[in-house]
Design a protein around this nucleic acid. Structure first.
Lengths: 133, 133
DNA sequence: AACACAATGTTGTATATACAACTTATAAAT
DNA sequence: ATTTATAAGTTGTATATACAACATTGTGTT
């Protein structure tokens, strides 16, 4: 083989994302929510009332993934949606409160990860994004 | 918020792995196999006959993930396993042939990705791994 | 040898993701 | 305005993953 299997860029990136997810997940154990859902809540917190599709654009997620996550978040009353076919989504009061509770945990996790990565690590991540787009 | 949401290390790494996976997946469309399964086949190709658990160690994958993948690969007769409770796994003849066909595709994909990443990109990836472990 | 404990494998459940098929709504073209 | 095409949402299916519960096998202690 031309390259060593250990170099496989796919499995390496998969592993890295599992590691990072694990950090966030361990902080979320008391909440009935996932890393991905947390990110969606944060997007809503930032963007206010938006069309569902905008969330996917922001996070580069499949429509179906967004659709199902929105449904899960709605089931727990963290978000409200208009009844249109292309609904507009926004945080509910309960969702807003959750976000306020999640932010410090998210920040702690980011602190943790940034401590591990260092400034140069963050640069490496940014560079990877720039070249892989 | 202390950090910009765009900086979320979790969602960024998830996105990167989705991108890389997409490259591999597009090459695998003619095969009835996934990126992850391909990696497992490559591990078996490299390691020969191994205990199932060793595969998980090598790729840092959950036992359950390995267990299910092994079952899928066995269903297609790409691997053989002893009938022990802790079985030893190895490539079948058919699996070996598949690996020979997969290697050039994998190498093409690696070429593609490395072209995008450049030498410095590979360094960035390695550095991320070193700091995130 | 008998028991306790640790490691490994399997299975159930839930979410994440991709992709395809389908539905519905909007935009474009005539 | 009606038709056509495009964009967006939903749902089905399959795998990836985490985690918990359980089963099985080894190991170690006594």
């Amino acid at each position: 083989m031309k390259y060593d299997l250990q170099l496989c860029i796919g499995s390496r990136l998969r592993r890295l994302s599992r590691i990072a997810d694990g950090h966030f997940r361990s902080k979320l154990s008391e909440f009935n929510i996932t890393e991905n859902q947390m990110t969606i809540l944060f997007v809503l917190n930032k963007m206010g009332k938006v069309e569902q599709g905008k969330i996917g654009q922001e996070l580069v997620l499949e429509r179906s993934t967004i659709s199902r996550n929105i449904k899960l978040l709605e089931k727990q009353n963290y978000i409200k949606r208009t009844s249109d076919y292309r609904p507009e989504i926004e945080l509910s009061k309960k969702g807003n409160e959750l976000v306020q509770n999640l932010i410090p945990l998210w920040e702690e996790t980011m602190d943790e990860l940034i401590l591990k990565l260092g400034k140069s690590g963050l640069t490496h991540l940014t560079e990877l994004e720039n070249s892989l787009n």
